Amino acid sequence: MQAIIATLGYVLSPSRDQVLMVRRDTRPDDLHYGKFNGLGGKLEPDEDVVSGLRREVHEEAGLDCTTVDLAGTISWPGFGRGGANWFGFIFRVPAWTGTPLSGNDEGSLHWVPVEDVLAAKVPMWESDRHFLPLVFADKPRVFHGIMPFADGKALSWSYSAV
């Protein structure tokens, strides 16, 4: 399978009870318009995944990641525009420096209670609710999942934890 390689990071507050999320609200033609999401994006050809995550968090939020923890990976066949396949490295960012921006080219930034994210109190991809409990678990284990998509909807979800 050929796929777009991407990072997705969840920047935690110092108390770890909130997560910095982007509300994609700047471009109505955005596939993610109106949804909250973690920070990240496509990997550049000359980057490893941690460097890519750090670059994306700096570009999108003005923060410098001092600690990143791999939460897992997800293969999203058929997720992107025109059915493009995506493969994402999912991270927790428990330590960082800087002052978060209020927004970026994709949308406004918000500190959201992790509890609200897990309780589906913020608009996001319905499919994110499958893997976010693994990301925010009290005793997280690295997971590797697959979530095939068709017509903008997840068809299934399965994962292995190590």
Rank of each mutant, 00 (worst) to 15 (best):
A84K: 06
T26Y: 04
A95H: 07
H32L: 14
L20V: 04
E56K: 14
V114W: 03
G41V: 13
P100G: 13
S51L: 10
E106H: 15
D25H: 11
G80S: 02
G52W: 06
R55C: 00
D105T: 12
E60F: 09
P94Y: 04
I90E: 11
P77C: 07
V93S: 02
L63C: 10
G88Y: 03
S13H: 12
L12N: 04
K35E: 14
H110G: 02
S13A: 11
I90T: 10
P77A: 04
C65E: 02
D30I: 06
E44A: 15
L109R: 07
P100Y: 10
C65I: 13
L101I: 00
G34P: 03
P100W: 07
E47R: 08
R92P: 02
V68M: 08
L43I: 15
Q18V: 01
L20T: 08
R55M: 00
N37T: 15
V49Q: 07
G80V: 09
V11G: 08
N37L: 14
R92F: 03
T67M: 11
N37W: 08
G40L: 05
R54V: 03
T7M: 06
D105Y: 05
G80W: 01
L43Q: 14
G52T: 07
G72R: 05
R16I: 00
T7I: 12
P113K: 03
L8R: 10
T26L: 06
D29H: 13
T73H: 13
V49R: 08
D48V: 12
A71S: 15
L39T: 01
F91K: 00
F87A: 12
G72D: 05
V93Q: 02
V57C: 04
V68D: 09
D17S: 10
L39G: 02
K42I: 12
V68F: 01
W86Q: 06
R54M: 14
E60C: 06
D17A: 01
R92S: 01
G9S: 15
V57P: 02
P94G: 01
S108G: 06
L63H: 10
P77L: 03
D105E: 13
L8T: 13
P94T: 07
R81M: 08
G107S: 06
T66C: 11
P14C: 06
G80E: 03
W96K: 05
W76S: 09
